[in-house]
Design a protein around this nucleic acid. Structure first.
Lengths: 335, 335
DNA sequence: CCCGTTGACTTGAACGTTCAAATGATACAC
DNA sequence: GTGTATCATTTGAACGTTCAAGTCAACGGG
């Protein structure tokens, strides 16, 4: 590592110029009330004059804390991208408010991931981690908990909800809201287009739909597809070919919803007027769809803020907490 | 900042356990050849035993270099996202190879951006910056150059090409390749769908098309639209309504291309068979389009690698260089 | 007048690393 | 046997900050 930075003013520079000790300068910066008004002014003037800023590395060394959190840079192939992209942005913003920063890591494989985190933490590169896309039997969760490495996750700790701090969006609430919305709008044949292998996330979303349908005393109409457009289109075609065709479809994802929209258009069904379609995630896909795709929006901004608050809390040895936030409906042409 | 990390083994711990001095341990880690084989083995054993890792903050302090580069987390609204997403991923990977990391910043406004960079650099948080999406009269470029802050950019330094280190993709080459490809496939009426306000990027792409058309002795057919689907669709409709309708369209972006594809489908023109469409950027949009959208792909991986190499070069006081890389065609259904 | 308290400031040490210089030890040439 | 080169290792200082303990003066109550 070459030393390339031109020499910056240090706390000693300022101290000498202001005719005080280093500690007084430090106090002037971090605890102004401890310094008498006139020296404070003098020190501040010098600080501005030489454009002094405390060196973060030195501070990090002494405080054993870098103010850095690591987040795994998602792979470009992943569909979730479009949600996580927004989340990452909000996360940066939230970190900033706590004078923290996010650094990215890009593990090649999942096995490497935990090892990489361990490495980063033990070398004091970062104070902890923000995970996203957790799933049942997630090695990262158990691994980090076991090692006592601080982290928060966007997504529940499925296996041990009390063992770590997480924030998640209540998928069931989202689909329930959507279903009830359609009911209030007069729809009576409301279908659900979900994922076949129903992991935890897909399961909850389906659950919300079923609950709502049960309490509305309606017969559920369900179909399943993979999270790809073609698959969704095919599954939706089947749904829409039913003799008693559904008038609204609540979808497990925007991909599913867009596929559904395509299927409807191909069959000459007017999306919006004749068929309501609700996506999930309010991703960039919603803008591409025509008519605009209504979607269940995750409050990523709130998730990010809460996660950061919680992480700072952890640093002050608060106990782990799980938080479930409710999503909200975003109405566009399709609903 | 609370000190929350449990006490980790330091170089002194290892030194004591191995019965050598701190410096010997340091050498064992960073310059093994300076240590005799048997002590080396002894030290390495202890290191593994206590799972020692050099503390990055301490190293950063002493070396005046953090091994951190800052990159501006792009705003979720921006269209370029879909390209930059991939770039960011590759950048992380490339940084990793040089034992560096990327940290994100999220300035609220453009004016803040430079101030934020200044702040980050002067407080020793980062060693430098990676910019993307540079444009003529870019305040960031001139500002960073003036302050002597190290940076590299994905995108030329339009105003002062020799003043800073950049890597860019040769847009003209891309559209030229596309145009020539269509010519070789037998097309003779090849149109270009560009941006109206032709900034530097759009201008170069248009340029490449015109050059190719000129050298092929074909009459250029041009239309313009904003980088939005509706706008592109409208402009493309006009193009396709010409009496002597073009048989291929080279587009300035994937958005333009997708809009064009929609227009064609609405007019009952078979995309692929009757009309070739070529996008630009090979973004996620290409996968959504049907038939799959052919596109001019920027070699983001190579860009990222080159940028990182160059940055490391800068640290060793190499002179600034500009590098232009050629994009390549990715063929899918639409061409 | 003494003593405890408070406020403003200073001093030395510590955080964990690496650089630069110093110390021995061994080997080799003359 | 002396001088010189090389190698393995150690020592002290430095990077820039903050903590903990200290000094010194002023103040106020008894």
């Amino acid at each position: 590592m070459s030393r390339n930075q031109q020499r910056m003013p240090t706390i000693a520079t300022v101290a000498a110029l202001a005719g005080v000790s280093r500690q007084t300068v430090s106090n002037a910066v971090r605890a102004p009330h401890r310094v008498s008004p006139d020296t404070l002014l003098r020190v501040q003037t010098i600080i501005r004059e030489v454009d002094y800023r405390p060196n973060r590395s030195a501070r990090a060394l002494q405080a054993r804390s870098t103010g850095l959190l690591a987040y795994r840079c998602h792979r470009p192939e992943e569909t979730e991208n479009l949600v996580l992209d927004r989340f990452l942005h909000e996360l940066c913003r939230a970190a900033d408010e706590h004078d923290h920063h996010i650094t990215l890591v890009s593990p090649i494989s999942t096995d490497q991931e935990l090892a990489m985190y361990r490495e980063l933490y033990r070398s004091g590169r970062v104070d902890g981690f923000v995970l996203s896309g957790t799933h049942p039997n997630d090695q990262r969760l158990t691994g980090l908990v076991d090692e006592g490495i601080p982290f928060v996750s966007f997504g529940q700790n499925w296996d041990a909800p009390r063992a770590s701090t997480w924030v998640d969006v209540d998928g069931a609430s989202g689909t329930r809201q959507a279903t009830e919305h359609y009911w209030r709008s007069g729809h009576r044949r409301i279908a659900f287009l979900g994922w076949p292998d129903d992991g935890a996330v897909g399961g909850h979303r389906r659950e919300g739909y079923r609950e709502a349908m049960a309490s509305l005393r309606l017969e559920p109409i369900e179909a399943s597809c993979f999270d790809r457009l073609e698959s969704a289109e095919a599954a939706a075609s089947t749904l829409l070919a039913l003799t008693d065709r559904p008038t609204a479809v609540v979808c497990v994802s925007d991909t599913a919803a867009l596929g559904c929209s395509w299927a409807a258009q191909k069959m000459g069904i007017a999306v919006g007027a004749e068929l309501g379609i609700m996506g999930f995630d309010d991703s960039a896909l919603t803008l591409i769809a025509r008519p605009g795709l209504s979607s269940i929006r995750q409050p990523t901004d709130l998730v990010a803020q809460t996660l950061m608050d919680r992480f700072i809390g952890l640093q002050h040895s608060e106990a782990p907490t799980g938080t479930l936030l409710a999503p909200s409906l975003v109405h566009r042409g399709s609903s």
